[in-house]
Design a binder for these strands. Structure first.
Lengths: 219, 219
DNA sequence: TTTTGTATTTAAGCTTACTTAACTTTGTCT
DNA sequence: AGACAAAGTTAAGTAAGCTTAAATACAAAA
């Protein structure tokens, strides 16, 4: 399968997960950095191939076959991320872009070697679930956006969305890491910013937009 | 850099090493599985980019810049092969085709992580030298084709050329492996076939063509 | 119900890496 | 030297994956 098709299907899946709503041509075009016309073209093509249910002017919906392909690419991506992080010691800021390339050029056989080496992990180093070979996605029960935590409540970080290098850098400079326990001190309704207390009692203030990329479980 | 360009330069380098003579358009076309016209096109293009010294109707010669690029791809290929073999336990017959894809999608940074993990190896699992970052190739002094060993002489296998899956299978069924010590019992000038004795005293006969893919040092 | 603005599709065209087929150069053989 | 076969080049065309610009559908407001 071509890199284009892989990325197309993968990003439809990821966008629908991230936003919780339907994926339009323009949103996908924006995400892939290509024109809306190119998305229409590809969507029609993948519709013919039975990878998605394409209807003009409607949102993009993956078929079962398409979702399976998307999950397979995501599996490869996340296994690579964990491998690069845990085995080769690459930093969290780099593993995403490396995995972004490797995921398309990895045979199922090689992937299962890596899976075995890592002892069948369920989550990647950012906390995202690694889909199984059959397409089953490990549960994230109880994982909610940081904004849903009440004032004075404690929670543990379960997932950090490294959406780009700037956000990655912010996580790093704030010292935010997976499995860290935080206390939400105050939520300012004025702009949605949140004041947090770290395990070492250090206090910081983060914006609503950054908070949207942090997910945790209540303690 | 595109996969096409990488492969073009890499195979010019490899062919000139393997055959010891100059690389023509038709030989390269055959190797890459594309038409001669496509080779001419690409050669002209890479000539303009200063990656090779292109002159119509003459053999293809890499420039310094082109050779460096070729060696870099070969370095990636061979480091991947060793990594897949030694760390992930893949079989020798598979590592080549996996590396063939990965080599084009591996950053220099990732490659150096792998190099460090493997503790700066000099040879891949087939016995081929791994070029250094600067383009220096580890010495293969004393390594000669099996056909150059005299009758009754002993030698140690240093390199096996896994040119395709059939040859790989033959190595496997004969039990030929790197660092194995062989004795050449008889060379038949009629067809060039060679009778060998294994460490366990087992005797086998191999064809000249297979012997051409075995390289060793005299003991 | 008609208007209007936004989203989507269609159309035409570009680039890369190929193809086949026709043509040209080279080097060898007599 | 001349002819010829082999090797290489040029020309024209294809498919994939894009682009921009013009045309069309949809949905929400008047």
């Amino acid at each position: 399968m071509s890199v284009s098709i892989d990325n197309f299907l993968k990003n439809i899946y990821l966008l629908s997960q991230e936003t919780g709503s339907s994926v339009t041509s323009s949103i996908l075009a924006e995400r892939l950095g290509i024109s809306v016309a190119a998305v229409t073209d590809m969507a029609r093509k993948l519709g013919r191939q039975g990878l998605l249910d394409y209807r003009p002017y409607r949102a993009l919906m993956l078929s079962d076959k398409g979702r399976k392909m998307a999950l397979k690419v995501i599996r490869k991506h996340r296994l690579w991320e964990l491998f690069l992080y845990r085995v080769l010691g690459m930093d969290l800021m780099s593993v995403h872009e490396e995995a972004e390339k490797l995921e398309h050029h990895t045979s199922d056989k090689l992937m299962e070697h890596i899976n075995r080496f890592l002892e069948h992990p369920d989550f990647d180093p950012h906390g995202d679930p690694i889909p199984g070979i059959g397409g089953n996605v490990p549960s994230e029960k109880g994982v909610v956006p940081l904004s849903e935590i009440e004032e004075q409540e404690k929670c543990k970080i379960k997932k950090l969305r490294y959406r780009d290098s700037e956000v990655s850098k912010m996580f790093e400079t704030f010292g935010l890491r997976k499995d860290m326990v935080l206390k939400v001190l105050k939520v300012y309704s004025f702009d949605g910013s949140i004041e947090l207390e770290f395990p070492d009692s250090k206090k910081v203030m983060i914006s609503e937009k950054l908070a949207d990329n942090i997910f945790c479980v209540k303690q």
